[in-house]
Computed example of a mutant assay.
Amino acid sequence: MRSELISVTTGSRETVYDITQKCADFVRSQGEDGLLNVFVPHATAGVALLELGSGSDDDLLSALRELLPTDDRWRHAHGSPGHGRSHVMPALIPPYATIPVLGGRLALGTWQSVALVDLNVDNQQRQVRLSFLSD
């Protein structure tokens, strides 16, 4: 297995951050068939496969705001208001995804992208572990 840790700056607001190109660059250097595992080693972020740039990313954030509101209901209450919701989110959007790789290329659907989903505005620096298992 080959593995690499990449750094991502998500900013000071909740975001859906496209990491598709970073994933594609990593598997291209492997040049073979296998599986790419994308893992976020954080308790407050997730990985999603979805269409980006067409409004779906904003729709996802809107849906998460409705499901996980920023208010004082959360028992996990340190950090910015509603921080506890960030710790619940990975149960809905897991911190990992596995993507087939064929000939050194991600075998994603036509409109699929790989995104880091981050609601935690208190932590602007994220790491993502890319691991390639060859066939």
Rank of each mutant, 00 (worst) to 15 (best):
Y96G: 05
N123H: 01
L108K: 00
P94I: 14
G103L: 10
Y96I: 00
G109F: 11
L116F: 08
A115D: 14
M89V: 13
G103D: 04
Q112V: 13
M89W: 07
L116C: 07
P100H: 14
P94E: 00
S113P: 12
L119T: 11
T110H: 04
P94S: 13
Y96Q: 07
N123T: 03
P94G: 07
V114R: 02
A91W: 15
W111A: 04
V121K: 13
G109N: 06
G104N: 14
V121Y: 01
L106Y: 02
V114Y: 06
L116H: 09
P90I: 13
Y96S: 08
V117H: 09
T110F: 02
N120W: 05
L92T: 10
N120E: 08
A91M: 11
A91S: 15
P95C: 04
G109T: 12
S113N: 15
V101S: 10
V121A: 12
D122R: 06
V117L: 01
L116W: 10
M89S: 03
V117C: 12
L108A: 13
L108D: 13
M89H: 02
V88I: 15
Q124I: 06
V101K: 03
A107D: 15
P95D: 08
R105E: 05
M89D: 01
D118L: 13
I99W: 03
Y96C: 11
P90W: 01
L116P: 03
L106F: 05
L108S: 08
G104K: 11
A107L: 15
W111Y: 14
V121L: 06
W111K: 10
L119F: 12
L92Q: 08
N120M: 02
T98A: 10
Y96F: 15
T98E: 09
R105S: 09
V88R: 10
L106M: 02
N120D: 14
P94N: 07
V114L: 07
V101R: 12
D122Q: 10
I93W: 01
P95K: 01
Q124V: 07
L108H: 07
L106D: 04
P95I: 11
D118S: 10
V117A: 00
L92M: 14
V121H: 03
Q124M: 08
M89N: 09
A97Y: 09
D122N: 04
I99G: 01
M89L: 08
A107H: 13
V88A: 09
R105A: 02
S113K: 14
G104E: 12
A115Y: 06
D122P: 05
W111N: 06
L116G: 07
V88Y: 08
T98S: 15
L92D: 12
A97D: 15
S113E: 07
R105G: 01
